[in-house]
Design a protein around this nucleic acid. Structure first.
Lengths: 246, 246
DNA sequence: CGTAGTCTTGAACTGCATCAACCAATGTGG
DNA sequence: CCACATTGGTTGATGCAGTTCAAGACTACG
């Protein structure tokens, strides 16, 4: 079903300076010196546009680069041999995609744009050599990988021991937190993904996600209009996450 | 409940040469030259013993080093604020523990020995500087982190979309695979963890784990005697994993 | 040899899945 | 601009996989 090898996304040789990017404090360049930043600018010279629904890469593709989301929104999906799929994450501006590829030199998941998006290409070989030169860059890169591991462990906790309401509440709080770090409102958000994609990520069926949204709305915690969500009672959401049941 | 900060494990200044370790092809030193191996030997100079039930580190402890399992068996556990726990992994000889700590300079999980164990301490600062010097070591380290991310994504798939039997079958196949890579039998194994710990890892209750073991035994797939497991029909296990139901 | 930890098994319950119908929003071609 | 199709979302009714509660058995270890 996903057999086309060359995603029809445009490659742009435009200069994309990390040093001038407003995401630099959320992305790979955190805390770098001017000197280091200039070398980064040289390395991250390629931008790529990915239209909604298209893939940045597929599982099995050779791994050559990491991608930093510049604009837009992605999901990553792993598939079992029998076709079952699991959304393993949603990525927004400033977040890195493709770390899975390092282990076997091939990607192990699909990265799909949930809206028209742009990414900055970070050629992996160059990142390794540059991070041999710059201690801070090396350390920042390691932190990003480690953070992904910690995040994954949190998702395991969620999938392994939380109930539907707790999962959805945790998901919403996590989203708003990341959006807030990017200057968006803490209380209003537009979901970029379908109920089914949320369900896949949270280990629930789309009907359960929908019902839980409705329940939160009935309880006055949320206002839900399709993908427009308004959080009316953040602390109630927090209480739901902290096992209000058991 | 886990408040003691200094785990009562012995520190040993014994020389532990990676170059002479029979785990070197499974551990950090994969593929290093003699030169590089010698530098590793200098770095990994401390061994530590951890008795069964004791912790290598706790969540919240400052992060200073990674640990390579030399002998024995560990589990890593994350805890939610309300006390819920999730086993995020089981580590055996040659596997690295502590990667979670890099992201915030503090550990985010507990690492507990499931039997009397020994680990090699890898001071993290030294690992970073050494991997600036040796390309192969750097790449190997990155591969190990990436492999952990890929593994975690596999667990998410398991937790998010597999049924109890499929989870346990996948767990057993994964264990035997790793044991086989260490020269153990592919068909006989001794579980180092309780049903409850398996359940926590797989997002199931211990009773469900126990029942599923019994079911596999009734079906002639396994022979189960407490923690001694004999796999009678490996391909049947494989079939269970590949969604024999849906 | 007794006590605590672990494991097994049964019976009843429940949270979520499944199946299915319907509704709303968006897009398309005439 | 309207008829129609498509995709995504909501809601209800029913079923079941896995949980919960409970009792007993096995094992290990002082």
């Amino acid at each position: 079903m996903t057999q086309e090898t060359a995603p029809p996304s445009r490659l742009e040789a435009l200069k994309v300076a990390c040093s001038a990017c407003n995401l630099r404090e959320l992305c790979l360049p955190v805390g770098l010196s001017d000197d280091e930043m200039m070398s980064l600018d040289d390395m991250v010279s390629t931008r790529r546009s990915v239209k909604r629904g298209e893939s940045l890469f597929h599982a099995g593709d050779p791994f050559a680069a990491l991608y930093a989301v510049r604009t837009g929104f992605f999901k990553t999906v792993v598939s079992a041999s029998d076709g079952r799929e699991q959304v393993t994450g949603f990525q927004m501006a400033g977040e890195l995609i493709g770390l899975d590829g390092i282990s076997t030199d091939r990607h192990s998941c699909d990265a799909v744009a949930l809206e028209d998006s742009q990414v900055c290409m970070i050629p992996y070989g160059q990142l390794e050599s540059l991070s041999r030169e710059f201690t801070l860059l090396q350390h920042q890169f390691h932190k990003i990988m480690s953070r992904e591991i910690v995040r994954d462990h949190g998702v395991m906790l969620l999938l392994g021991s939380m109930r539907a309401e707790e999962r959805l509440a945790a998901f919403l709080l996590n989203l708003t937190q990341r959006l807030q770090a990017r200057g968006f409102s803490a209380s209003a958000l537009v979901l970029r993904m379908t109920r089914e994609e949320i369900g896949s990520y949270l280990g629930l069926k789309l009907e359960t996600v929908s019902r839980t949204f409705s329940k939160f709305q009935d309880e006055g915690i949320l206002e839900v209009k399709q993908r427009d969500i308004r959080i009316l009672d953040q602390s109630a959401l927090q209480r739901v996450v902290n096992g209000s049941s058991s």
